[in-house]
Structure formats: C-alpha cells, structure tokens
Amino acid sequence: MKAIWRGTVVAESDDTVVVEGNHYFPAAAVKAEYLLPSNTKTMCSWKGQASYHTLFVDGDANPDAVWFYPDPKDAAAEIKGRLAFWKGVQVVE
C-alpha cells in the first residue's frame, strides 16, 4: 500500500492494518521528513486518544492529515506504532 499526497509517496508498506476502512502504516514506513508536529488531539471511545501530524510536501501543508494512537486501548492494540491518513491523502495498492 502507498499513501500519496500531491503526487508524493509519503508512506509505503505491504504491512498495513485496516481498522474502520483506514490503512494504518507502520511508523517506519512513513517518511518522517514530510511530518510536522500538531497539537491536535481527539478521543475515540474504543481506540483511545489520537494525536496528529501535519503533512508538509513541497511547501504545501495539509494540517492534521496524519493520525495515530500513541497508547491505544486494548481493543485497538494492533494499531500501536502505526499511522493513518485522510484529508485528501490517497491510499492505494
């Protein structure tokens, strides 16, 4: 699977975990040079608290387009150490 934004591959892995239709990539498969920290946090009743990154590619920012669960609840343990994408990021085979 590949995560692509504005024509740039920002993550690539054949080891994704699909939860609620979203592919969670291993952290090592995401190109850190495209990530900027974000202070945004949200809460999911069964996964726990999510944190976010802003994607930054060729001078363009996509705020909070990447999310992850630093300490997921037991029901979502399989996504620990993984990141997912939205907000216009294409995830394709």
Rank of each mutant, 00 (worst) to 15 (best):
residue 77 A to Y: 04
residue 58 D to I: 00
residue 78 E to N: 07
residue 86 W to T: 07
residue 22 N to P: 06
residue 78 E to I: 11
residue 76 A to M: 04
residue 34 Y to M: 11
residue 62 N to A: 15
residue 57 V to Q: 07
residue 53 H to Q: 13
residue 60 D to E: 13
residue 87 K to V: 09
residue 19 V to T: 13
residue 4 I to D: 06
residue 16 T to A: 08
residue 43 M to H: 10
residue 42 T to M: 07
residue 66 V to P: 07
residue 50 A to V: 07
residue 48 G to C: 13
residue 62 N to F: 12
residue 70 P to E: 09
residue 15 D to A: 12
residue 25 F to G: 03
residue 80 K to T: 03
residue 49 Q to D: 10
residue 56 F to K: 15
residue 52 Y to R: 03
residue 4 I to V: 12
residue 52 Y to D: 04
residue 43 M to P: 03
residue 87 K to S: 13
residue 86 W to M: 01
residue 29 A to W: 11
residue 52 Y to T: 04
residue 4 I to P: 11
residue 33 E to H: 06
residue 6 R to F: 06
residue 68 F to D: 00
residue 86 W to D: 03
residue 67 W to R: 14
residue 31 K to Q: 06
residue 67 W to P: 13
residue 53 H to G: 02
residue 85 F to E: 10
residue 20 E to F: 03
residue 65 A to R: 05
residue 45 S to H: 15
residue 14 D to G: 06
residue 51 S to E: 10
residue 25 F to C: 02
residue 1 M to R: 12
residue 91 V to F: 05
residue 79 I to D: 01
residue 75 A to N: 09
residue 65 A to Q: 00
residue 90 Q to K: 14
residue 42 T to W: 14
residue 64 D to R: 00
residue 7 G to N: 04
residue 89 V to T: 06
residue 67 W to F: 07
residue 91 V to T: 02
residue 51 S to C: 13
residue 29 A to E: 04
residue 9 V to H: 06
residue 91 V to C: 05
residue 26 P to I: 05
residue 56 F to I: 13
residue 39 N to E: 09
residue 13 S to R: 06
residue 45 S to D: 15
residue 4 I to M: 11
residue 89 V to R: 00
residue 55 L to N: 01
residue 11 A to K: 04
residue 53 H to M: 05
residue 63 P to D: 13
residue 68 F to V: 01
residue 42 T to K: 09
residue 15 D to S: 14
residue 92 V to T: 10
residue 62 N to I: 15
